[in-house]
């Protein structure tokens, strides 16, 4: 009896029970359903989002009656007509789109050398330092970072205090369009670099040496070798930065001070200030539409880049 115990430990017995339980609930030959069962919880979880989107779609088709504060029973496209005829919404959409493209351009411009240096450096200490400099702000969150910029750029902020010491009148650095764009660029930079870096790693160092030994200078190597080879990463990074800045809420709200609203801020105001859920929902659907159209367009022109879940090898 004793010998049996030592040779058959308790953990094995537990495992036996588990295996038996598993075998009893799992039909023979059920193996082909395994992946779907494993995916089911995730599909359910994202389902909450899908149902939410259906609610948005439904309320976007109902108009608020201002006298009774009730929503219409029948569906109408009145909210969408209103969105595209009001100059306010068109201004906000234009401001967000333009901002997103400017931010993407400058973020990629800054992120490319960062990713390149980080991947190519031979010093592991430097690589670690660059990674930490990237992750720390990424992990700190948008509100705290925007708060830091308020301290630096505010009317009684560090920059203006420093200027005051040399006798310069305070300058209004905040609550304008460039301030919002600047805040967005520094917020997006870690996303950009982290999307670019794997693509950069995939480029063998030898091709640069080869290009150099064939007589290309560094600009030519960069333009004809590295950038084309890093293209999947550039597209991935560009898409992520473009859509995230197009739809951002916190930077326009905090650094724009209400005067530089993006679409997300307009949507928030419709829901929480004006309480016009119908019009807010219509704006949300329009934003989703613009975002998907841009993503689709870029996918069509450039391909999906590095944006793919799971493995493509099978």
């Amino acid at each position: 009896m004793r010998k049996y115990r030592t040779s058959y430990p308790i953990s094995w017995r537990i495992m036996d029970v588990l295996e038996a339980a598993f075998a009893s609930i799992w039909p023979k030959g059920g193996g082909k359903y395994t992946p779907y069962l494993m995916l089911a919880p995730a599909i359910l979880l994202v389902g909450a989002l899908v149902v939410g989107l259906l609610y948005i779609g439904d309320s976007s088709l109902r108009v608020l009656d201002r006298s009774t504060f009730l929503f219409s029973d029948h569906w109408t496209i009145e909210n969408y007509k209103r969105a595209f005829s009001e100059s306010f919404t068109l201004t906000v959409i234009w401001r967000s789109l333009l901002g997103a493209f400017i931010v993407t351009f400058f973020t990629l411009l800054l992120a490319f050398p960062y990713a390149y240096v980080m991947v190519r450096t031979s010093s592991s200490f430097l690589r670690k330092f660059l990674l930490i400099a990237l992750f720390l702000p990424f992990f700190i969150g948008q509100v705290v970072r925007a708060y830091g910029w308020l301290i630096i750029l505010g009317s009684q902020g560090i920059v203006n205090d420093a200027l005051g010491l040399v006798g310069v009148e305070p300058i209004r650095l905040l609550f304008n369009y460039p301030a919002v764009l600047f805040g967005l660029i520094q917020y997006m930079l870690p996303f950009g670099v982290l999307m670019l870096a794997p693509a950069m790693t995939a480029i063998p160092e030898e091709v640069e040496a080869a290009s150099g030994s064939l007589g290309a200078n560094w600009i030519k190597t960069l333009w004809y070798v590295i950038i084309p080879m890093a293209k999947p990463g550039i597209i991935g990074a560009g898409l992520v930065v473009l859509t995230l800045s197009l739809t951002d809420f916190a930077m326009p709200a905090i650094l724009g001070g209400g005067s530089q609203d993006f679409i997300a801020n307009a949507i928030y105001d419709q829901f929480f200030r004006t309480s016009d859920q119908g019009f807010g929902s219509a704006l949300t659907i329009i934003l989703i539409g613009i975002g998907s159209m841009m993503v689709g367009l870029i996918f069509m022109v450039f391909g999906a880049g590095t944006l793919a879940l799971g493995s493509e090898k099978k």
Binding site: L49, L287, G291
Partner: peptide, 15 residues
């Protein structure tokens, strides 16, 4: 990821 955060947020709020 493809649905803007404000859209997901409002959707989940309604849900």
């Amino acid at each position: 990821f493809t649905i803007p955060l404000i859209g997901s947020g409002i959707g989940l709020m309604l849900f």
